[in-house]
Protein backbone atom coordinates (compact mmCIF):
# COMPACT_ATOMS: atom_id res chain seq x y z
CA UNK A 1 0.00 0.00 0.00
CA UNK A 2 1.58 3.29 -1.00
CA UNK A 3 1.37 6.51 0.92
CA UNK A 4 -0.90 8.36 -1.48
CA UNK A 5 -3.45 5.64 -1.27
CA UNK A 6 -3.47 5.77 2.48
CA UNK A 7 -3.96 9.54 2.50
CA UNK A 8 -6.91 9.19 0.15
CA UNK A 9 -8.43 6.60 2.41
CA UNK A 10 -8.05 8.89 5.37
CA UNK A 11 -9.62 11.83 3.55
CA UNK A 12 -12.52 9.61 2.58
CA UNK A 13 -12.91 8.57 6.20
CA UNK A 14 -12.84 12.14 7.51
CA UNK A 15 -15.36 13.27 4.92
CA UNK A 16 -17.67 10.46 5.96
CA UNK A 17 -17.35 11.29 9.65
CA UNK A 18 -17.83 15.00 9.07
CA UNK A 19 -20.98 14.54 7.01
CA UNK A 20 -22.48 11.99 9.37
CA UNK A 21 -21.85 14.23 12.37
CA UNK A 22 -23.16 17.25 10.51
CA UNK A 23 -26.41 15.54 9.52
CA UNK A 24 -27.01 14.18 13.01
CA UNK A 25 -26.66 17.65 14.46
CA UNK A 26 -28.72 19.11 11.63
CA UNK A 27 -31.67 16.94 12.71
CA UNK A 28 -31.37 18.27 16.25
CA UNK A 29 -31.00 21.81 14.95
CA UNK A 30 -34.22 21.50 12.96
CA UNK A 31 -36.06 20.19 16.02
CA UNK A 32 -34.75 23.14 17.98
CA UNK A 33 -35.73 25.60 15.25
CA UNK A 34 -39.30 24.28 15.11
CA UNK A 35 -39.76 24.23 18.88
CA UNK A 36 -38.23 27.70 19.20
CA UNK A 37 -40.60 29.26 16.66
CA UNK A 38 -43.67 27.53 18.06
CA UNK A 39 -42.79 28.54 21.63
CA UNK A 40 -41.87 32.09 20.66
CA UNK A 41 -44.84 32.85 18.45
CA UNK A 42 -47.30 30.75 20.40
CA UNK A 43 -46.60 32.03 23.88
CA UNK A 44 -47.50 35.55 22.74
CA UNK A 45 -50.98 34.39 21.82
CA UNK A 46 -51.73 32.70 25.10
CA UNK A 47 -53.71 34.77 27.56
CA UNK A 48 -56.90 34.61 29.57
CA UNK A 49 -59.32 35.02 26.69
CA UNK A 50 -57.48 32.42 24.60
CA UNK A 51 -58.49 29.76 27.11
CA UNK A 52 -61.88 31.04 28.23
CA UNK A 53 -63.54 32.85 25.33
CA UNK A 54 -65.34 31.71 22.23
CA UNK A 55 -63.94 32.65 18.80
CA UNK A 56 -64.85 36.11 17.58
CA UNK A 57 -65.50 37.08 13.97
CA UNK A 58 -62.42 38.40 12.16
CA UNK A 59 -61.75 42.07 12.76
CA UNK A 60 -62.96 42.06 16.33
CA UNK A 61 -60.11 41.99 18.81
CA UNK A 62 -59.81 39.22 21.38
CA UNK A 63 -61.60 35.93 21.28
CA UNK A 64 -60.26 32.52 22.13
CA UNK A 65 -60.72 28.89 21.37
CA UNK A 66 -62.26 27.64 24.60
CA UNK A 67 -64.73 25.54 22.62
CA UNK A 68 -62.00 23.91 20.55
CA UNK A 69 -59.86 23.07 23.58
CA UNK A 70 -62.82 21.41 25.29
CA UNK A 71 -63.72 19.74 21.99
CA UNK A 72 -60.24 18.27 21.55
CA UNK A 73 -60.44 16.78 25.02
CA UNK A 74 -63.86 15.28 24.38
CA UNK A 75 -62.96 13.78 20.99
CA UNK A 76 -59.67 12.35 22.27
CA UNK A 77 -61.40 10.96 25.34
CA UNK A 78 -64.15 9.21 23.38
CA UNK A 79 -61.61 7.90 20.88
CA UNK A 80 -59.55 6.41 23.72
CA UNK A 81 -62.65 4.88 25.27
CA UNK A 82 -63.34 3.06 22.01
CA UNK A 83 -59.77 2.28 21.00
CA UNK A 84 -58.20 1.15 24.27
CA UNK A 85 -60.52 -1.77 25.12
CA UNK A 86 -60.62 -3.08 21.56
CA UNK A 87 -56.88 -2.73 21.07
CA UNK A 88 -55.98 -4.29 24.41
CA UNK A 89 -58.42 -7.16 24.01
CA UNK A 90 -57.29 -8.07 20.52
CA UNK A 91 -53.67 -7.73 21.66
CA UNK A 92 -54.46 -10.23 24.43
CA UNK A 93 -55.92 -12.56 21.84
CA UNK A 94 -52.82 -12.57 19.66
CA UNK A 95 -50.39 -12.95 22.56
CA UNK A 96 -52.34 -15.38 24.70
CA UNK A 97 -55.44 -17.21 23.50
CA UNK A 98 -54.49 -17.29 19.86
CA UNK A 99 -50.73 -17.42 20.19
CA UNK A 100 -49.08 -19.32 17.38
CA UNK A 101 -52.28 -19.81 15.38
CA UNK A 102 -52.25 -18.78 11.77
CA UNK A 103 -55.11 -16.34 12.44
CA UNK A 104 -52.92 -14.42 14.86
CA UNK A 105 -50.20 -14.21 12.21
CA UNK A 106 -52.68 -12.72 9.74
CA UNK A 107 -53.89 -10.45 12.50
CA UNK A 108 -50.37 -9.19 13.08
CA UNK A 109 -49.89 -8.46 9.41
CA UNK A 110 -53.24 -6.71 9.09
CA UNK A 111 -52.62 -4.48 12.12
CA UNK A 112 -49.20 -3.56 10.83
CA UNK A 113 -50.67 -2.55 7.50
CA UNK A 114 -53.46 -0.68 9.29
CA UNK A 115 -50.95 1.25 11.36
CA UNK A 116 -49.34 2.55 8.18
CA UNK A 117 -52.53 3.41 6.31
CA UNK A 118 -52.51 7.21 5.90
CA UNK A 119 -54.69 8.81 8.56
CA UNK A 120 -56.58 10.76 5.93
CA UNK A 121 -57.71 7.49 4.34
CA UNK A 122 -59.09 6.42 7.72
CA UNK A 123 -60.93 9.73 7.91
CA UNK A 124 -62.27 9.06 4.43
CA UNK A 125 -63.49 5.63 5.52
CA UNK A 126 -65.39 7.07 8.49
CA UNK A 127 -66.77 9.76 6.21
CA UNK A 128 -68.09 7.06 3.89
CA UNK A 129 -69.65 4.84 6.56
CA UNK A 130 -70.80 7.37 9.18
CA UNK A 131 -70.98 10.90 7.83
CA UNK A 132 -72.63 10.11 4.49
CA UNK A 133 -75.44 7.90 5.91
CA UNK A 134 -76.08 10.28 8.82
CA UNK A 135 -75.90 13.30 6.50
CA UNK A 136 -74.03 15.28 9.14
CA UNK A 137 -70.54 15.78 10.47
CA UNK A 138 -70.41 14.64 14.08
CA UNK A 139 -68.33 14.22 17.20
CA UNK A 140 -68.70 10.47 17.14
CA UNK A 141 -67.40 10.26 13.58
CA UNK A 142 -64.25 12.16 14.55
CA UNK A 143 -63.76 10.03 17.64
CA UNK A 144 -64.23 6.84 15.66
CA UNK A 145 -61.63 7.91 13.08
CA UNK A 146 -59.12 8.65 15.84
CA UNK A 147 -59.90 5.38 17.62
CA UNK A 148 -59.11 3.40 14.45
CA UNK A 149 -55.71 5.09 14.46
CA UNK A 150 -55.06 4.05 18.07
CA UNK A 151 -56.19 0.43 17.70
CA UNK A 152 -53.18 -1.01 15.81
CA UNK A 153 -50.77 0.89 18.07
CA UNK A 154 -52.38 -0.36 21.28
CA UNK A 155 -52.81 -3.85 19.85
CA UNK A 156 -49.13 -4.01 18.94
CA UNK A 157 -47.81 -2.81 22.25
CA UNK A 158 -50.14 -5.05 24.28
CA UNK A 159 -49.06 -8.08 22.28
CA UNK A 160 -45.39 -7.21 22.62
CA UNK A 161 -45.61 -6.62 26.37
CA UNK A 162 -47.51 -9.85 26.98
CA UNK A 163 -44.96 -11.80 24.96
CA UNK A 164 -42.29 -10.41 27.28
CA UNK A 165 -43.99 -11.98 30.29
CA UNK A 166 -42.03 -15.16 31.02
CA UNK A 167 -43.87 -18.45 30.59
CA UNK A 168 -42.81 -19.61 34.04
CA UNK A 169 -45.24 -17.07 35.48
CA UNK A 170 -48.07 -18.59 33.47
CA UNK A 171 -47.08 -22.09 34.46
CA UNK A 172 -46.91 -21.10 38.12
CA UNK A 173 -50.45 -19.76 37.91
CA UNK A 174 -51.77 -22.80 36.09
CA UNK A 175 -50.06 -25.09 38.58
CA UNK A 176 -52.17 -23.52 41.29
CA UNK A 177 -55.18 -24.81 39.47
CA UNK A 178 -56.69 -21.54 38.24
CA UNK A 179 -58.07 -21.29 34.74
CA UNK A 180 -55.99 -19.91 31.91
CA UNK A 181 -58.16 -16.82 31.30
CA UNK A 182 -57.77 -16.02 34.99
CA UNK A 183 -54.00 -16.35 34.69
CA UNK A 184 -54.05 -13.96 31.72
CA UNK A 185 -56.13 -11.42 33.55
CA UNK A 186 -54.56 -11.48 36.96
CA UNK A 187 -50.96 -12.43 36.24
CA UNK A 188 -49.94 -11.66 32.67
CA UNK A 189 -51.84 -8.40 32.32
CA UNK A 190 -50.68 -7.26 35.71
CA UNK A 191 -47.03 -7.71 34.94
CA UNK A 192 -47.44 -6.12 31.50
CA UNK A 193 -49.43 -3.18 32.88
CA UNK A 194 -46.86 -0.39 32.79
CA UNK A 195 -45.78 -1.30 29.28
CA UNK A 196 -49.35 -1.29 28.04
CA UNK A 197 -50.01 2.07 29.71
CA UNK A 198 -46.92 3.45 27.99
CA UNK A 199 -48.28 2.30 24.66
CA UNK A 200 -51.65 3.85 25.38
CA UNK A 201 -50.02 7.18 26.25
CA UNK A 202 -48.04 7.07 23.02
CA UNK A 203 -51.22 6.38 21.08
CA UNK A 204 -53.01 9.27 22.78
CA UNK A 205 -50.07 11.55 22.00
CA UNK A 206 -50.30 10.45 18.39
CA UNK A 207 -54.02 11.19 18.02
CA UNK A 208 -53.78 14.51 19.83
CA UNK A 209 -51.71 15.69 16.90
CA UNK A 210 -53.94 14.28 14.18
CA UNK A 211 -55.84 16.75 12.05
CA UNK A 212 -56.39 15.13 8.69
CA UNK A 213 -58.98 12.53 9.79
CA UNK A 214 -60.97 15.18 11.65
CA UNK A 215 -61.36 17.56 8.71
CA UNK A 216 -64.34 15.74 7.28
CA UNK A 217 -65.56 13.76 10.25
CA UNK A 218 -66.00 16.15 13.16
CA UNK A 219 -65.43 19.27 11.01
CA UNK A 220 -65.45 22.44 13.13
CA UNK A 221 -67.86 24.78 14.85
CA UNK A 222 -67.60 28.25 16.37
CA UNK A 223 -69.65 27.22 19.40
CA UNK A 224 -69.44 24.84 22.31
CA UNK A 225 -70.80 21.44 21.45
CA UNK A 226 -71.63 18.61 23.79
CA UNK A 227 -73.68 16.52 21.39
CA UNK A 228 -72.32 13.35 19.85
CA UNK A 229 -74.20 13.96 16.63
CA UNK A 230 -73.19 17.54 15.82
CA UNK A 231 -70.00 19.00 14.32
CA UNK A 232 -67.33 19.37 16.96
CA UNK A 233 -64.63 22.06 17.13
CA UNK A 234 -61.11 20.81 17.84
CA UNK A 235 -57.88 22.71 18.38
CA UNK A 236 -56.19 21.01 15.43
CA UNK A 237 -58.83 21.79 12.84
CA UNK A 238 -58.99 25.32 14.24
CA UNK A 239 -55.28 25.73 13.56
CA UNK A 240 -55.83 24.66 9.97
CA UNK A 241 -58.78 26.99 9.39
CA UNK A 242 -57.21 29.96 11.14
CA UNK A 243 -53.75 29.60 9.63
CA UNK A 244 -55.19 29.58 6.12
CA UNK A 245 -57.22 32.72 6.83
CA UNK A 246 -55.94 36.15 5.82
CA UNK A 247 -56.55 37.70 9.27
CA UNK A 248 -53.59 38.36 11.54
CA UNK A 249 -55.65 37.90 14.72
CA UNK A 250 -56.66 34.44 13.62
CA UNK A 251 -53.15 33.45 12.63
CA UNK A 252 -52.01 34.57 16.04
CA UNK A 253 -54.56 32.28 17.64
CA UNK A 254 -53.44 29.45 15.36
CA UNK A 255 -49.90 29.86 16.73
CA UNK A 256 -51.29 29.81 20.25
CA UNK A 257 -53.12 26.56 19.56
CA UNK A 258 -49.98 25.10 17.97
CA UNK A 259 -48.08 25.96 21.12
CA UNK A 260 -50.70 24.22 23.25
CA UNK A 261 -50.72 21.04 21.16
CA UNK A 262 -46.94 20.84 20.91
CA UNK A 263 -46.50 21.21 24.66
CA UNK A 264 -49.22 18.63 25.37
CA UNK A 265 -47.68 16.10 22.99
CA UNK A 266 -44.14 16.64 24.21
CA UNK A 267 -45.30 16.14 27.80
CA UNK A 268 -47.15 12.94 26.88
CA UNK A 269 -44.14 11.67 24.95
CA UNK A 270 -41.73 12.41 27.77
CA UNK A 271 -44.07 10.84 30.33
CA UNK A 272 -44.35 7.65 28.28
CA UNK A 273 -40.56 7.56 27.89
CA UNK A 274 -40.07 7.79 31.63
CA UNK A 275 -42.58 5.01 32.17
CA UNK A 276 -40.96 2.92 29.46
CA UNK A 277 -37.60 3.22 31.20
CA UNK A 278 -39.20 1.71 34.26
CA UNK A 279 -40.40 -1.21 32.15
CA UNK A 280 -36.94 -1.80 30.74
CA UNK A 281 -35.31 -1.69 34.14
CA UNK A 282 -37.92 -4.11 35.44
Amino acid sequence: MNKRHSILRRIYDYTFKTFATFFAFLAIFILGAILYEVLKRGSGAINFSFFFHLPKPPGEAGGGIANAIVGSFIVTFIASMIGIPIGVMSGIYSAEFGRGTSFSRYLKFSTEILSSVPSIVIGLFVYAVIVVPMKSFSTIAGALALSIITIPLIHGVTEEMLLMVPNTLREAGLALGVSYPFVVRKICLKSAKIGVITGILTAIARISGETAPLLFTSLNSPFFNFSLLKPMPTANVTIFNYAMSPYDDWRQIAWGASFLITVAILLLTILSRILFKRVKNG
Binding site: A24, F25, A27, I28, I30, L31, A33, I34, E37, V38, R41, A205, S208, G209, E210, T211, A212, N236, I239, F240, A243, R251, A254, W255, S258, I261, T262, I265, L266, T269, R273
Partner: peptide, 24 residues
Protein backbone atom coordinates in the same frame (compact mmCIF):
# COMPACT_ATOMS: atom_id res chain seq x y z
CA UNK B 1 -29.56 12.66 23.47
CA UNK B 2 -29.40 12.74 19.69
CA UNK B 3 -31.57 9.68 19.27
CA UNK B 4 -34.06 11.13 21.76
CA UNK B 5 -34.06 14.36 19.74
CA UNK B 6 -34.70 12.46 16.53
CA UNK B 7 -37.54 10.62 18.26
CA UNK B 8 -39.08 13.90 19.37
CA UNK B 9 -38.85 15.10 15.79
CA UNK B 10 -41.24 12.29 14.90
CA UNK B 11 -43.57 13.24 17.75
CA UNK B 12 -44.09 16.76 16.40
CA UNK B 13 -47.51 16.67 14.77
CA UNK B 14 -47.98 17.16 11.07
CA UNK B 15 -49.94 20.37 11.45
CA UNK B 16 -47.08 21.99 13.39
CA UNK B 17 -44.75 21.18 10.48
CA UNK B 18 -47.35 22.84 8.31
CA UNK B 19 -47.44 26.02 10.40
CA UNK B 20 -43.67 26.17 10.63
CA UNK B 21 -43.22 25.33 6.97
CA UNK B 22 -45.66 27.94 5.74
CA UNK B 23 -44.78 30.87 8.00
CA UNK B 24 -41.11 30.28 8.84
Amino acid sequence: PISIGVELLSAVPSIIYGMWGLFV
